[in-house]
Computed example of a mutant assay.
Amino acid sequence: MNISVLGCGRWGTFLAWYANRVHHTVTLWGRPGSKNLMTLTAEHKNEYLELPESVRLTDDLEEAVRSAEIILISISAQQLRSFLKTVSKLPGLKDKTFVLCMKGLEADTGKRLTQVFKEEMGAAAHVGVWLGPGHVQDFTRNIPNCMVVGSDEIGVTKKVVEAFNSDLIRFYYGQDLIGNEIGAATKNVMGIAAGMLDGAGYSSLKGALMARGTRELSRIVRAMGGNDITIYGLSHLGDYEATLFSPHSNNRRFGEDYVKGIPFHKLAEGVATVEALHHLSQEYEVELPICHALYEILFEHKETSKVLIDLFLRPVKFEF
Rank of each mutant, 00 (worst) to 15 (best):
Y48E: 04
G255P: 03
G132E: 06
M38G: 02
E283V: 02
V259C: 03
S88E: 09
F164Y: 09
M121I: 05
V26Q: 04
G191V: 03
K96Q: 05
N20K: 06
V286G: 14
V116M: 04
N251D: 08
K302M: 13
S166F: 11
Q78M: 11
I231L: 11
H292N: 13
H24W: 05
L84D: 13
F98L: 10
S34E: 09
D257I: 00
L57Y: 03
T214N: 07
T140Q: 05
I262S: 00
N36T: 11
V26L: 07
Q78H: 04
C8Q: 04
A163V: 06
L6P: 01
C146K: 14
E69M: 02
K111L: 12
N250W: 00
L49Y: 06
F245K: 08
E296P: 00
G9V: 02
G110K: 03
G207L: 10
P263I: 01
V160Y: 00
K260E: 15
Y284L: 12
E241I: 14
D138P: 09
S34W: 00
Y240E: 03
S4E: 05
Q175W: 07
L308E: 14
S203I: 10
T109S: 15
E153I: 04
E287Q: 13
V316D: 14
N36R: 05
D310Q: 13
Y295I: 05
R212L: 09
L277W: 03
V316R: 07
S54Q: 13
S76M: 10
Y284K: 14
A184M: 03
N46W: 03
N250T: 08
M210E: 11
S151A: 14
F254R: 07
M224E: 11
V316H: 12
Y48C: 09
E181L: 02
W130D: 10
I220N: 13
W29G: 06
G191Q: 02
L311E: 03
L6M: 04
P91C: 02
F171W: 10
S82Q: 12
K45T: 09
Y172L: 13
L90W: 05
L90G: 08
E285H: 15
A124L: 07
L177T: 12
N142P: 00
H126N: 15
T157K: 01
D108L: 08
D138H: 11
G238T: 09
A42K: 15
K118W: 01
V148T: 15
E319I: 14
E47K: 12
I182R: 06
E275W: 04
G128M: 04
K317Y: 00
N165C: 07
D108H: 14
R112P: 06
N2M: 07
S67N: 11
K302S: 14
I220F: 11
H279A: 09
T273R: 10
R81V: 03
V274G: 06
N2H: 10
S246F: 06
H236Q: 13
N145R: 08
Y295V: 08
Q78V: 06
A184Q: 03
P263H: 06
A125N: 01
A68D: 06
Y173P: 03
H44Y: 13
R112A: 08
T25K: 15
G104K: 02
G150D: 14
S34H: 01
L49R: 07
R212W: 02
H135F: 12
T58G: 06
R81W: 02
